[in-house]
């Protein structure tokens, strides 16, 4: 009779498994349709680089090249130039004439952010970094100063 008992037990277990999957099936799917719908990220998510400005429109970057020195992969290239009275980009003496980030080298570690004395370079929330051409992976100063709006929801701290 142990065989019969086993049969009943086994059938019960099979029914349990079917019940579990059925409960899953009637729930709404968890899928986030990524490029169309925004994904939820945490506030300190490290995405694409951005160069920030002061409230009066001046660039924060003073062209000190500390980020270039701090970068472990050599992804950043800075060329500084003197500010003049006619052409003033930043409040300090110097500004970054060329500021390039090579996203093919960048590992998004955030060391540049930590090295920056004026908090000019930050890692933003844009995670969609794919491109069609290799040269498009080099972010120029223009790209960095005008970052695209990332399609994300920032999770609020509870």
């Amino acid at each position: 009779m142990s065989g019969l008992k086993e049969l009943v037990e086994g059938t019960k277990q099979l029914a349990q498994a079917m019940e579990v999957t059925f409960k899953e099936a009637v729930q709404p799917p968890l899928t986030v349709e990524s490029p169309v719908e925004p994904i939820a990220i945490y506030p300190r998510f490290r995405g694409r680089h951005e160069l920030r400005r002061y409230e009066n429109g001046m660039e924060r970057c003073v062209g000190c090249s500390l980020c270039e020195a701090a970068c472990p992969t050599g992804a950043i290239h800075v060329e500084a130039a003197e500010n003049t009275e006619e052409e003033r980009h930043s409040p300090g003496e110097r500004y970054a004439k060329v500021y390039e980030v090579n996203l093919l080298r960048c590992i998004l570690c955030g060391d540049c952010t930590r090295a920056c004395p004026t908090e000019a370079i930050v890692l933003g929330h844009n995670y969609a970094l794919a491109n069609y051409q290799r040269q498009d992976f080099i972010l120029t100063k223009e790209d960095l100063l005008n970052p695209p709006e990332p399609n994300v929801i920032v999770r609020v701290k509870e």
């Binding site: 999957t21 899953e24 099936a25 729930q27 799917p29 968890l30 899928t31 349709e33």
Partner: peptide, 10 residues
Amino acid sequence: KVIGRFQLRI
């Protein structure tokens, strides 16, 4: 489609 829904996918 149905297997997707069973696995909470679309």
